[in-house]
């Protein structure tokens, strides 16, 4: 049976028991690992960093699955863990000063160009550069809407925010990106 055909209830049922926890975890990974990977990758950009954050995130999921109360969808819970891990990682990276967003020039775009696992063009690199300058929450909204093509309704559940606020946040992010591109003649 393909992993996506397995329901969250089945996965959670397996993970609740010590003997079947590993099996349930394998199924959870099969169903959600790629989606979570891309969610984290769009936040931290670099593959190696994404791998670290994703692994930390999944270890936490394995250890704290008993704390999942079922008040939200499983993906919503996973998304929040991944989002928190990503933001914690970015804050630590910023403190270390390895990528300062206040630097002049385009450190993110330059970093992406040097990344062997990035083959986007100048415009794609510039898009990630400007996205990196957005507040974390706004960037999450943009990523979910633009890259994951999530509806505002689903986003409201995941981010625990009203649809109107999400729509406004997305539009605001789009305007900032437009402005960035126009300023640099990248249209």
């Amino acid at each position: 049976m393909p992993e996506t055909a397995i329901s969250d209830e089945q996965i959670l049922g397996l993970m609740q028991h010590q003997q079947t926890r590993e099996k349930g975890f394998r199924l959870l990974l099969g169903k959600y690992q790629e989606r979570l990977y891309w969610q984290i990758r769009r936040m931290v950009l670099n593959h190696e960093d994404t791998n670290d954050v994703l692994q930390n995130c999944m270890v936490k999921v394995f250890r704290s699955i008993d704390q999942f109360e079922g008040k939200s969808a499983l993906y919503t819970w996973l998304f929040r863990i991944a989002a928190n891990e990503s933001i914690t990682f970015l804050n630590q990276r910023q403190k270390r000063g390895s990528t300062s967003l206040d630097e002049e020039g385009a450190p993110v775009a330059n970093g992406l160009k040097a990344d062997p696992y990035f083959d986007g063009d100048k415009l794609q690199a510039a898009l990630h550069q400007v996205l990196h300058s957005l507040p974390d929450k706004q960037r999450q909204v943009f990523n979910l809407r633009y890259f994951e093509e999530m509806s505002y309704h689903d986003m409201a559940a995941v981010l625990n925010t009203s649809e109107g606020a999400l729509k406004a946040s997305f539009h605001h992010a789009v305007k900032k990106i437009e402005h960035y591109f126009r300023e640099r003649g990248l249209e």
């Binding site: 769009r42 696992y117 990035f118 083959d119 986007g120 898009l127 990630h128």
Partner: peptide, 10 residues
């Protein structure tokens, strides 16, 4: 831009 590739690889 959305119609093109995202640029990330694994």
């Amino acid at each position: 831009l959305k119609s093109g590739k995202e640029g990330f690889q694994v």
